[in-house]
Amino acid sequence: MGIIRVKARAMNGKTEVKMLIKHIMETGRRRDTSGNIIPAEFLSELVVRHAGKLVFAANLGPSVSKNPFFSFSFAGGAVGDTLELSWKENTGKFGIETAEIT
C-alpha cells in the first residue's frame, strides 16, 4: 500500500499534480507520556518523474505539516501517462509509487 494520494490532471498542455502523503512527520522534539523523546521520523525527500524525466523534487524538514500536501504543474503530460513518485524518510526508509494522469 502506498502512502501518497495523487490527483494529476492534464489540461491545456500541462499537468497539475496534487499530492497528499500519509505521514506523521515526527519532529524528534516531542516527548511521550513517560517523558522520553519520540525519535524523529519525517519525509526528507520526494521526487516525481514523468516518462523518466524529473518534474519535481523536494528536500523536506520537520517544519512541514503532518500528512504533507504539495502541488505543482509541469508542461506536457497526457491522460493515461504514468508518474513515478519516490519518497525517503530521514530514517532511510523509502518507497516508490506510481500514479496515472487523468
Binding site: V64, P68, F69
Partner: peptide, 18 residues
C-alpha cells in the same frame, strides 16, 4: 522545504507548514 524546479515545471508550489 526546498523545492527543485526542473525546466518545464512552473515556478508555483503549494504546501502546508507548521
Amino acid at each position: 522545504a526546498q523545492f527543485i524546479i526542473p525546466e518545464g515545471t512552473l515556478a508555483e508550489v503549494s504546501t502546508r507548514v507548521r
